[in-house]
Design a protein around this nucleic acid. Structure first.
Length: 1140
RNA sequence: GGGCGAUUAGCUCAGGUGGUAGAGCGUCCCUCUGAUAAGGGGAAGGUCUCAAGUUCGAGUCUUGAAUCGCCCA
């Protein structure tokens, strides 16, 4: 017996029962044991999820793929590592801890204490990891998970007292250490389970990588002007800002007038001689320059013009009577305020070399900088020059750009080219340094008014306005960035990028455009900035000496050997700040003492190293060789070309020159149902927990798995509901149908049927019908398709094939087989039906297991062990569906292929038959005499083979074939454009028109006879003409693809009586249902009917009794209980039933 | 500013090598029903973004434009 299955199941609740079953039976551990010694292995490396917040539905998308292929290969018999990863270090964790603590700046962290701050970061990571672990388990993701409670316990301990000694148990082993040490060992061979990128091993492996880079001379300290977050007080790398940094912002834009000192207008073209004289007479001549970053004006050094642009020379008389002449782009005259007169024009190239009065040459910092420049240039006085810059445009501003090489990245490069002084105005919090006069101590974003008033006082101000533009913001805290000149650490890409491109080409990128994207990034990327002036992260293993030289330390052991100071303070701690900062080393030659640079590392180093660190590259090289490279990795595409994929490839290229993985699967972005990004603040975000509770993880997983990789996924409850209704419910209904009838019949599977390969020998043991053989062939076909595509990491076609099979199973096999299951005695045919459907369901359960692990498990436990998942137990060995072997592909026989074709034709005929029924308005319950079919020989053979099925489906008594020339159809003759268009060329339209006007009969006859016909003097071969039957108008017919079906709607008294009898049956069965009778309960039936109806019941009494399981059917006064009365087709019926 | 992609039914999308437009969802109508939170049949709905070109024939090929993505400056 099977456990009864309700068609009204709460799927999310059922999933929780499955989770409990897996937990109490340790089903995942059993799977690992079963595959532990497998020859074949599948190496998946998890891209670490940021352990900072709860998991989102977008994470669940990728995690579905990860679980799907791990389960698939496990069922295929592959051994695996099953290691999840958490990304732990970096600014995002710091920012959230700061938020929790109410910190406003780095100073707050210093005051609070770096050591305690780091503890809070670790705590946050461990707590987030615990939550994400629970959510992943809820998704059905099988991994070697940590116990979430243990993680939370460690989180608690790490803030309480990291030096407390604790013990953890693993498989009977005891691991002992301080809390800090234990946390630093998470994911290593001792503790196993999820890896954490803050582990000692991960950090030291990065050290080894950086050391190797240094040995090749690729690590350098560079000065550059970079985007800088004044709140986080750190540089934001190019990788980060490009991804999601830009937001609209309204800024004050200021136009300044720079007073010319030296100029030469000999190349100018004047409007008139008078204009030229006006120019000469004007007391002040100015360049107009426009900027949206007024805070950079105090460190202005030069101005640039487009050498190919034309500049207007205009004269204005201001309200105070001042007469001034301005130079500005000829297309930017709208920037002027008030009336003006154009005096002439001059080419930008002819302005190069002019000089102007510095805007803030009186500030101490500027005086100092210019003095230093003069000292370096033999005492030559500095003059602010006009230079040429091709990037200058007239689209915004005045066509003249003010340049501050200490405060803008392009300006910095220009300044370098022209050997200009570079003046950096801001400290790391975004405030002006001392020696900036009235500006000192003011924040960059609060000085526009002050700058404006200072400019006014000097006579350099022209106008201001508000300006809306895209401005870079900190991707973590949202603060508008500034540009700051700083020293950062870089890995040079000059040489590495080409090696990386070679490595990237060896990887199978899905979808294929991934490779192009990655190569594009590699071609264009600048050197890799690896430093961040923060606290929580990889301690960069760079020690600097007072003379500016530096060394990179490659390991714990090397550091210990080189340490001359501070080792006691560090020993026993993880390699993080502040302990690591105590260590000093001595230069072997100069004897100078080196200190560690205070910077921490770019977090993508942490994630990029995992193909080495988690595979024990440093500690167990044979293990690494076994599992490297990965067979498969997958993450969302956006961002990863420059982040994880990039870092993985970079580090693997440096360490081994090999690809870290064979296949990279990338997928697009998850959006809401309207196609908009999900944001908590917008209220359109769906929490993972909420979706899992409402829709169920299986439904979510199906939606994810059927998504096209390169399309954005529009995620929402409508989409989920569609999956549930179209896939999950039909499958569940078939399963429920099977269980209900098998139980009613007391049918149970024998051991051979339970065995995996039973499907292929069924025919030898059971009297299979055509329909049975058909559904088994469809199943085999589906198994083949699914295997093929899953092996190629292409989930969608596999999922669609299963959907199509479920549709066929539900709407054809089961629907057409129902009556076989209804029969009251166990016939051989019925045995065959059970055996077939049982085999289909057990095979299907295994086939869909990687996609919907819960549903498949529920079916499996009941179908194999006859238990509900609530009470299911460890039955020894491979007790879970996920322990089974995946259904293997096999070649279909010729007979099977023919059967599939035949059934497809039959279904077309049936669809057409339903169509004629609908047109005729004669409902299907009313039997009719016959249908007439016009079709070719192949269709005729198919129809004859499936004659009974068609009769029953369409409720007709007979099928008749009409001759081709019949009253049902006429013919349409058309030219085959594909063939004749090429052959006839320009003559084709004329021939076609003539052909279609000719009488059809002779042409049809000729084509049938295989004879050529002549049209317009052109001889056409039979295969160049298309003959299509067309239903004759006025008849009830339906046609498609050369098949035409006509319906004979003549009603005889016998047919009418039969139709009435069916109406009676339906009403009695409605009563049975209303009375909550079991499908096998027998009843006694009493009825009263109008005479014509009574005659019909009498004539079809056996039929009525059989269909309603009535032991007796008698005319009389119906009883009060279970009674109904109804009028139909002009007849009235009152009927009652009673359970026997 | 450069590169790539897209633009087809109300919505989401299919449409090798040119031959007279399809699916799912939604809407409406009909129908079946002991799988019933299902099932079946049908209808309406499209100047295939626009323009020019090649061709007997263009959703499909070429060029240009517009709009929208993504990537890079």
């Amino acid at each position: 017996m099977f456990q009864p299955v309700s068609s009204q199941t709460d799927f999310p609740a059922q999933e929780r029962l499955v989770l409990a079953f897996w937990k109490r039976t340790r089903a995942f551990d059993r799977l690992r044991q079963l595959r532990a010694h497998a020859e074949k292995q599948f190496s998946f490396i998890d891209g670490p999820i940021t352990a900072n917040n709860p998991m989102g539905v977008h994470h669940a998308w990728g995690r579905t793929y990860k679980d799907l292929w791990q389960r698939f290969f496990a069922m295929k018999g592959y051994n695996q590592r099953w290691q999840n990863g958490f990304d732990c270090q970096g600014l995002w964790v710091e920012v959230n801890v700061e938020k929790d603590m109410g910190f406003k700046s780095k100073r707050d962290i210093e005051v609070y204490g770096v050591e305690r701050f780091i503890r809070l970061c670790k705590q946050r990571v461990l707590n987030s990891a615990a939550m994400q672990t629970e959510q992943s388990i809820r998704l059905g993701y099988w991994m070697d998970w940590d116990d979430p409670d243990e993680l939370r316990w460690l989180a608690q301990k790490i803030v309480e007292d990291p030096q407390q000694v604790i013990t953890l148990k693993r498989d009977g082993r005891t691991i002992r250490g301080t809390v800090e040490q234990i946390v630093g060992m998470l994911g290593t061979p001792e503790l196993e389970r999820s890896y954490f990128t803050f582990s000692d091993e991960n950090n030291y492996q990065i050290w080894a990588f950086l050391k190797k880079c240094h040995e090749r001379g690729w690590i350098y300290r560079g000065e550059d002007v970079i985007p800088w977050c004044p709140r986080c007080a750190t540089g934001i790398s190019q990788h980060e800002i490009d991804t999601e940094g830009y937001k609209d912002r309204e800024d004050p834009a200021i136009t300044v007038r720079m007073k010319l000192r030296r100029y030469d207008v000999s190349h100018a073209e004047w409007v008139s001689e008078a204009a030229r004289e006006k120019f000469e007479r004007a007391p002040g001549k100015f360049l107009l320059a426009w900027t949206t970053t007024p805070w950079t004006l105090p460190v202005n050094v030069m101005a640039s013009v487009g050498p190919k642009l034309r500049y207007a020379i205009v004269r204005q008389v201001h309200k105070d009577g001042e007469v001034a002449v301005y130079f500005l782009g000829a297309k930017t005259l709208h920037m002027l305020r008030g009336e003006y007169e154009v005096l002439g024009e001059i080419l930008g190239a002819h302005m190069v070399g002019w000089t102007y009065e510095g805007l803030f040459d009186d500030l101490p910092a500027v005086i100092d900088a210019l003095k230093r420049w003069e000292d370096l240039h033999d005492g030559r006085p500095f003059e602010h020059p006009v230079i040429a810059w091709d990037e200058v445009s007239e689209e915004e501003g005045t066509g003249i750009v003010h340049n501050a090489p200490g405060a803008g990245p392009e300006d910095y490069q220009l300044g370098k080219q022209h050997s200009m002084p570079k003046i950096a105005p801001l400290n790391e919090d975004g405030y002006y340094l001392d020696s900036f006069g009235p500006l000192s101590g003011k924040h960059a974003h609060e000085v526009p008014e002050l700058v404006e008033s200072l400019l006014k006082a000097k006579g350099y101000f022209y106008r201001h306005e508000k300006y809306l533009h895209r401005y870079p913001h900190c991707w973590r805290c949202g603060t508008p960035l500034v540009y700051r000149m700083v020293d950062e650490w870089y890995i040079s890409m000059d040489e590495l990028r080409y090696h990386m491109m070679e490595v990237a080409k060896q990887i199978n990128w899905i979808p294929p455009f991934g490779l192009e994207r990655e190569l594009d990034w590699l071609r264009n990327m600048r050197d890799w900035m690896i430093s961040k002036k923060r606290y929580w992260g990889l301690a960069l293993p760079i020690w600097e000496y007072p003379d500016g030289t530096f060394e990179v330390i490659g390991s714990y052991e090397e550091l210990k050997a080189r340490a001359v100071e501070g080792w006691e303070a560090f020993e026993g701690h993880t390699p993080h700040r502040p302990y690591i900062d105590h260590i000093k080393i001595r230069h072997p030659v100069t004897g100078l003492i080196g200190r560690r640079v205070p910077d921490v590392g770019n977090p993508w180093l942490d994630a990029g190293i995992v193909a080495y660190s988690t595979l024990r590259y440093r500690t167990d090289r044979r293990y690494w060789e076994r599992w490297f490279p990965a067979d498969f990795i997958t993450e969302s595409f956006p961002g990863q070309f420059r982040n994880w994929f990039y870092a993985l490839i970079a580090m693997s290229t440096v360490l081994e020159g090999k690809p870290p993985t064979r296949t990279i699967l990338g997928y697009a972005t998850l959006l809401d149902e309207k196609g908009e990004p999900m944001h908590k603040s917008k209220g359109n975000a769906i929490e993972f927990n909420e979706a899992a509770d409402k829709a169920g993880a299986d439904v979510m997983r199906w939606l994810y798995a059927r998504q096209r990789y390169d399309d954005n996924l529009l995620f929402g409850y409508n989409a989920l509901n569609e999956v549930r209704r179209q896939v999950i419910l039909p499958l569940w209904n078939v399963y429920a149908f099977f269980v209900t009838y098998a139980n009613a019949d007391g049918w149970t599977p024998n051991e051979a049927l339970k065995a995996d390969n039973a499907a292929w020998s069924l025919a030898q043991h059971y009297a299979l019908t055509t329909l049975d053989r058909w559904v088994l062939a469809r199943l085999a076909e589906t198994v083949n398709t699914v295997n093929e595509h899953l092996l190629a990491f292409d989930a969608r076609p596999a999922v669609l094939a299963i959907e199509s099979f479920i549709e066929d199973l539900s709407n054809w096999y089961v629907r057409r087989s129902r009556e076989r299951f209804w029969g009251s005695t166990m016939t051989a045919e019925k045995q065959a039906a059970y055996a077939t459907l049982y085999t289909v369901l057990t095979t299907l359960a295994r086939l869909i297991a990687p996609i919907v692990p819960f549903l498949s498990e529920v079916m499996w436990q009941n179908l194999i062990y006859g238990v509900s998942v609530e009470t299911a137990q460890d039955n020894g060995g491979a007790f879970s569906v996920h322990h089974q072997a995946y259904p293997e592909p096999r070649a279909l026989t010729e007979a099977e292929r023919a059967l599939l074709r035949e059934m497809a034709l039959v279904r077309t005929v049936v669809a057409l038959g339903h169509n004629t029924r609908a047109q005729s308005k004669v409902k299907v319950r009313q039997p009719l005499n016959k249908i007439t079919i016009v079709a070719n020989d192949e269709v005729r053979r198919a129809v004859l083979a499936q004659r009974e099925l068609i009769l029953d489906e369409l409720n007709v008594k007979d099928i008749e074939f009409a001759e081709q020339e019949s009253e049902l159809v006429t013919y349409r003759v058309a030219a085959d454009a594909r063939k004749l268009g090429k052959k006839l060329g320009a003559a084709f339209p004329r021939v076609r028109e003539t052909l279609e006007r000719m009488p059809t009969s002779p042409i049809v006859q000729a084509v049938r006879a295989g004879q050529p016909i002549t049209v317009d003097g052109v001889e056409l071969q039979p295969d160049e003409v298309i003959v299509q039957p067309v239903p004759r108008a006025g008849l009830i017919v339906a046609g498609e693809d050369g098949i035409v079906v006509g319906l004979d709607t003549t009603l005889t008294e016998a047919l009418i009586q039969e139709g009435l009898a069916r109406e009676v049956v339906r009403r009695i069965n409605d009563l049975r249902k209303a009375a909550n009778l079991n499908v096998s309960d027998r009843i006694e039936t009493t009825y009263k009917a109008t005479p014509r109806l009574a005659a019909a019941i009498a004539a079809f009494a056996d039929f009525v009794r059989g269909e309603t399981l009535s032991l007796s059917l008698r005319e009389g006064e119906p009883e009060d209980e279970h009674r109904t009365s109804d009028t139909f087709d002009g007849e009235t019926l009152t009927v009652s039933i009673r359970k026997v």
